[in-house]
Design a binder for these strands. Structure first.
Length: 256
DNA sequence: ATGGCCTGTGGGACAGGA
């Protein structure tokens, strides 16, 4: 079972690339972020045409998450992250596919920091910690996949200095991510590849792609029952190099 | 060494991304 996460940066602009990637790599499940569209204009027809059922949680202009499943319809189990009824951002969607609970996460960036946007990021991560604990207690296979907007370690960025003031590398951001790992969640890429560059994002600016000036911010965290089934993990780096690409590359795992 | 972009909204810049 191949499960991927892909921040598409606008699903309508990205649709040809998305359909091409689905056809080439055939993930069983694809968690998408940054749809940047409302629910009524989500391209459900084109995605069904590619052989995928879908659930989605859109928003005008920004954010937006979806879960696609090949040959079946994901069974939605949560829409929105619990813990703040006033939070109107579409950043969390959860569904069960083939017995595996899968979340599509678009975590707040938090820039500029310090400030209210950073406070929102940290509060959101605290809510995620609580909800993740509930899922963990169920002792079922769970995959928390998405754009976490956290660079976990110095080796996950091309330049520690360039990112020093950024919300993605702040000690509070890293601590909140590390808290999930300490609670028993497995960072799938690092479980399979303890060392080395596994960047998932390269900025459109400053020739970042050409210089390989990227960082690793798209993650798949696994509950123990899912981690026991992990056989492979990787990044579809070539997807980032195509015309009209998203600034993120798809990141994936294979569970047996 | 520095700076370089893209998407959506809406019909011109600007917000937001990271």
């Amino acid at each position: 079972m191949k499960i991927a996460t892909y921040n598409v940066n606008g699903i309508r602009s990205r649709l040809p690339r998305l359909l091409e990637w689905l056809d080439e790599t055939k993930p069983d499940v694809a968690c998408l972020q940054e749809l940047k569209c409302t629910d009524d204009i989500f391209p459900v027809g084109e995605i069904a045409g590619a052989g995928y059922g879908a659930v989605w949680h859109g928003q005008k202009g920004f954010n937006g998450v979806a879960i696609l499943a090949r040959g079946c319809n994901p069974e939605e189990t949560a829409r929105g992250l619990p813990g703040d009824p006033d939070d109107a951002h579409s950043r969390y969607l959860e569904a069960v596919v083939d017995g595996v609970t899968i979340a599509s996460i678009y975590l707040p960036i938090g820039n500029p920091q310090p400030g209210p946007k950073f406070d929102y990021k940290i509060a959101w991560m605290e809510r995620l910690r609580h909800h993740a604990a509930d899922l963990y207690a169920g002792e079922r296979p769970v995959v928390l996949a998405g754009d976490y907007n956290v660079i976990p370690q110095d080796e996950d960025t091309f330049s520690v200095r360039a990112m020093a003031g950024d919300a993605l590398t702040q000690p509070e951001s890293r601590a909140a991510f590390r808290t999930l790992l300490a609670a028993g969640w497995t960072d799938a890429i690092r479980a399979r590849h303890p060392a080395g560059r596994f960047y998932t994002f390269w900025d459109y600016q400053a020739g970042a792609w050409a210089r390989d000036a990227g960082f690793r911010i798209d993650h798949l965290l696994l509950s123990p029952a899912a981690a026991d089934r992990l056989v492979d993990a990787g990044v579809d780096k070539a997807t980032r190099g195509k015309e009209k690409a998203s600034d993120h590359a798809p990141t994936w795992i294979v569970l047996r």
